[in-house]
Nucleic acid binder design. Sequence first.
DNA 1: AGCACGCCGACT
DNA 2: GTCGGCGTGCTC
Length: 739
Amino acid sequence: MTYADIIVDISHEKVDRSFQYKVPEELQHKLQVGMVVTIPFGNGNHERKGYVIGLSDTPAFDTSRMKELTGICSSEETTEERLIALAAWMKNQYGSTMVQALKTVLPVREKVKAKEKRYIILNVSEEEAEKIAGKLESGRCKARARLVRALLEEKKLDYTKASKEFGMTASVLRPLADEGIVQVVQDEVYRMTVDGANIPHEELSILTEPQQEAFDQIQEEWKADPPRPVLIHGVTGSGKTQVYMKLIRQVIDEGKQVIVLVPEIALTYQTVRRFYGWFGEKVSVLNSRLSAGERYDQFKRAKRGEIQIMVGPRSALFTPFSNLGLIIIDEEHEQSYKSENSPRYHARETALYRAQMENARLVLGSATPSLEAYTKAKDGEFRLVKLDARFEDRPLPKVSVVDLREELREGNRSVLSRSLRKAIENRLKCGEQAILFLNRRGYAGFVSCRSCGEVLKCPHCDVALTEHNNGRLVCHYCGYEQPRVEKCPVCGSPYIGGFKAGTQQIEQVLHKNFPKARILRMDYDTTRAKGSYEKILSSFAAHEADILVGTQMIVKGHDFPDVTLVGALAADLSLNAADYRCAERTFQLLTQAVGRSGRGTKPGEAIIQSYHPDHYSIQTAAAQDYEAFYQEEMAYRMLMDYPPAAHMLSVLVSGENEELLEQGMDYLAKFVERIASRYRIPVIGPAYAAVGKVNDIYRKVLYLKHRDERILQDIKDKTEKYIELNSGFRRLYIQFDYT
DNA sequence: AGCACGCCGACT
DNA sequence: GTCGGCGTGCTC
C-alpha cells in the first residue's frame, strides 16, 4: 500500500498542512508528486482538490481512519504540476516547509478571497425585511436580526467584512438564505494595473554591430541541444536591453512565452512604458506593491494565454505560462533576487531549475556579473557572451581615484576632495550635470580610523566589527567580542570612531560651496512619498537641476545624457560591511555609478574618493576591469572557502524569548556539531545575526561551509528531522539559508 | 470552507 | 427536560 501526503486546496490558514490518504491500487503507478487529485475531505466527505506533495510506503496516521483518494484530475493542469514540482525542489534546496514553498509558487490558493468578492443582498422588499427583522428580534435570533438590520442600512454587504465585523458565521446566514430572505452574490472584481493600451506602439530599434554579434552568438547557442544558459556580460551603456527585446520577439513569434525578471528598483515608469510600447497588450508588468489578488489576476491572464510576456521582480518567475520559452534575468547580480523569507530561494538558481524542467532557455545579463554566474561561465556551464562596446562606441568615462587620507593630511576635512570640487565647478560652468553618489551600504556601526583608514576587524573572520550600544565591538560571524578602542591600533591616532555622513549633510556642503547650483537630493527620505522617485528622476533628466545627490538608488540604469561627472564620496564604506560579499558589492556599485557618466554625446568623467585607494575593488572599478576584479575576488573566496568556491549553510533561529532562544540554539549547535564532526566540518557560531533583534524578536545564526553541497544538504536534512522530533523547538522559528 | 459538537438561554 | 441558536474546533 502507498500513502500520499496531500495539501487540500482550501484557502484557509487552518488547513495549511498535509493530510495523508491511501492510494487506490489502480492509481499506484500513475500517481506522482505534484499531481492534482480529488479527495473526500471533512465530515461531509465533500470532494475537493488536493496537491500531492509526497508519497511513502509507511503510514504516518491511523490507517483505520485514513480515507482513500478518489482520482487524478490532471488533464491540462500540467503547468500547475510543474510549478508544484518546482516547489518541491525549492523545499529540498532551501529547507523550507512544503506549504511555504507552495505558497510562494502558487498564489492560486488566495483566489477565493481575492478574485470573487462575495456580497450579501436582501431578497425581499424593505417593508418585509423590516417585519422579518422585528420577528427575529422578538424571537431568539439576534445574530440574524443584526444581519437583516445591517442590510436595511446598506443594501449590499461585503461577505468577509460582515463575518468579521459582527461575527456572522455560515450557520447564521444559511437559514436566511434558504428561506430566500437574503441572497449571496458573487461579483467579478476587475483590477487593472498600468493601462498599456494608451501607450503608442514603438518599433524595435535596429541592433548595432556588437549587439547583433551578441544576438548571433546566442542564436548559435540556442541551436545546441540542450542549449546552455547564456550570460551576457555587457559594459554599462552597451544596450543589453535591445538584445533582450530581439530575443523576446523571436521567442514569442515561435508561439512561446517569456518571463523577464528585473530588480524591483528598475521597475520604473520608464521601463514599463518601453515594454508596453514594444509589445503592447502582450505584456503584463508585476510589482511588489500589487496585492496578492492583483497578482493572481495577472497570473490568471498568463494561464489563459492572454499575455505572452511577464515582466516583474523575482516573484514573476512563477508565472504559470503553459509553454515557457525563455527566462531573462536582467542585472543578474542584484541582491533583490534572493528572497528574505522562507523559502529563501535565489531567483537565478530557481530560474535555472525551472528552465531545465520546462525546456526553456535562460539568459542572464549584467555589467558586473555575480561571482556565481561568472564562475559557471568560466567553467563552460554557461555560455559567455560579451558586449564590450558602449552604444555608438562612446568611450567609457575617465576615472580617477582620490586618496581621502591624503586630503586629511593636507588639511581638507570636507566631504569634497579638492579635485572633485574643481570638477563640479567646471561642469557648472559648461552647463553640464553631475551626480554625487554616497555609498551608504554597510555604513551602520563599523569603526574606522580617520587618519589611516584602518577598520577594526574580527581576528577570526576577516569581517568588520560592529559597534553595539553597550560600547562593545562584536563580530556577527563568530560572536567574537572586544571592548571599544580609544586610539587606532595601527597608527595610534585618536580620531577613530563610527563614520557619519548623510546625503543631507552633503547637500548642505554643496549649497555652501556652490550657492548658485540647483541641487536635487534623492534618498530614502525624499522618495518615501508615492511617485516622488519618478518626479526627481524626470526633473533631473529635464535638466531642471545641476547636481543630483543620492544613495545607491541613483546608480541603477538611468540614462541622463547631460551627466558628464560622477563623484563617488567615500566609495569604500560598503567595503566594511559585516559580509563576505562586501568587496563584490563595492565593485558593483562603483562600476554602475561610474557608468552613469558620459552616456550622451559628451565624454564623461568620474572621481572616486576612498580611504582604501589601493583596494582591488576600487582599483578595478576605476579601471572598469571586471576580469581583474573577478580574479582577485575569487582568489579570496577560494582562500576563505566562501561561496561560490564553497557552499554555505546557515541556520537562522529566532524567537521572542531570548533565554529560550539561547537554550534552543545551544542544543541545536551541539547536534549540528556532532553531525558535522563526522565530516570534519567546523561549525561557526552560534552568533547573533547581522541584525540581532528585529521587532523584539531575537535572532541567532549558525554557519557551515563546505565545498561539497551534498554533504551540507545531508546535514540540513538531518537537522530538519531533529527539529521536527523535538517539541522543544516548537516555540522557535527556524530557517535554513543555503548558498 | 463546511460540518459536528456542545454550551446556554428560553419555552413547553 | 428539550429545542434551537451560535461559537468552537477539526478535517487524513
